[in-house]
Design a protein around this nucleic acid. Structure first.
Lengths: 193, 193
DNA sequence: GTCTATACGTAGATAGAC
DNA sequence: GTCTATCTACGTATAGAC
């Protein structure tokens, strides 16, 4: 891929993730990429095409990260602990992906959700289904994936809100503390200490 | 409150929840409210003020729903089951609130998050903390609230995505099935059948 | 492949009549 | 309290030179 095109995809992904499709202008993207606004149209037919391409670009980087996550091998419960911990650190770092995920849930049409479902979910799904089949053959593994992604993404994104709550504590922002909490919940529920 | 003002808040909340702040124009809101665009400025100083007022209007209706949720009294585990089930049906119906919640997590500034934290969270938090204190005195109740809201909101909002997944099943869209799954997970985790 | 210049629509907001 | 008319700014997108 040409360097200008790559640069455009990078800055577009960053801006779109941070502020959303409508709140980012082509002029702003071009400025961040170091070219003029008109020049974008040499690389992408319109704003929507650039958005789609930027999101796909973001998904690509994501699947490779997830594949490397799946390479670990240990006993099931330790595996879960490592997985939760690594998912937390991964999506803490990859805030762009996390935010685009939420934005697509809210505003994505059928076509764009299909992109997400086919482009990035299979990797993590296959890995987690394998893990859950070991841990909990009696549970619905598809829902377990949504449980886990929901818990992790929500905890990470809700930290800003958590900080505003009277009951918010500094430890609630710390990833290891979050990881321990989530693993304990997933393994034992509330019934067993 | 004047009927026109109330009407404006209602349609504004609906449109902002569905499509987001930037994607909704003052002209569109005025059209839905049956007045002209200029007339809005008699009631609200600008678009942002209308947005804030609409969100607060949405929060108000929400707290009363949550208070009625809290009135139930049974043994702790049955209480959890009823609570999860009612939260699912409540926020399935109140999609506007659910979507605004996600939008505020993504785009809300400190002031707007404070509005959410002080305006609606205390009600549900107090109720759930009481429930969790009975169920799981050893767990972090603040995180438990975020667990529960994350699970419920994410499952509801992810149904569109779930439908696109190869592994998506019709039963995954059904609230009672979701409720049973979430309750089982919260009570037992994956360790115990 | 990138530039300058510009067309064209639509946005938020205001002025002033009724 | 709502209207019509209008201002001004900014958005996407295109035309054509280099």
């Amino acid at each position: 891929m040409e360097p200008t095109q790559k640069k455009l995809l990078g800055v577009a992904a960053e801006l779109f993730a941070e502020r959303g499709f409508r709140a980012v202008s082509m002029r702003e993207i071009s400025r961040s990429a170091g070219i003029t606004q008109a020049a974008i149209y040499h690389h992408f037919t319109n704003k929507e095409a650039l958005y789609i391409a930027a999101v796909e670009y973001l998904y690509e980087g994501q699947t490779t990260d997830l594949v490397s996550l799946a390479s670990q091998q240990e006993d099931p419960e330790a595996k879960l602990a490592v997985t939760v911990s690594r998912l937390l650190t991964l999506f803490d770092k990859q805030a762009q992906f996390r935010r685009i995920y939420f934005r697509e849930l809210l505003d994505g049409d059928q076509k764009r959700l299909k992109l997400l479902a086919d482009g990035v979910f299979p990797e993590i799904h296959e890995f987690l289904v394998g893990l859950m089949a070991q841990l909990a053959p009696h549970m619905d593994s598809h829902l377990m994936v949504l449980d886990l992604t929901g818990l992790i993404f929500h905890h990470l994104e809700a930290r800003k809100l958590s900080a505003q709550l009277d009951t918010g504590r500094p430890k609630h922002q710390k990833l290891p503390y979050l990881a321990d909490h989530i693993v304990a919940l997933l393994l034992n529920g509330v019934r067993n200490q």
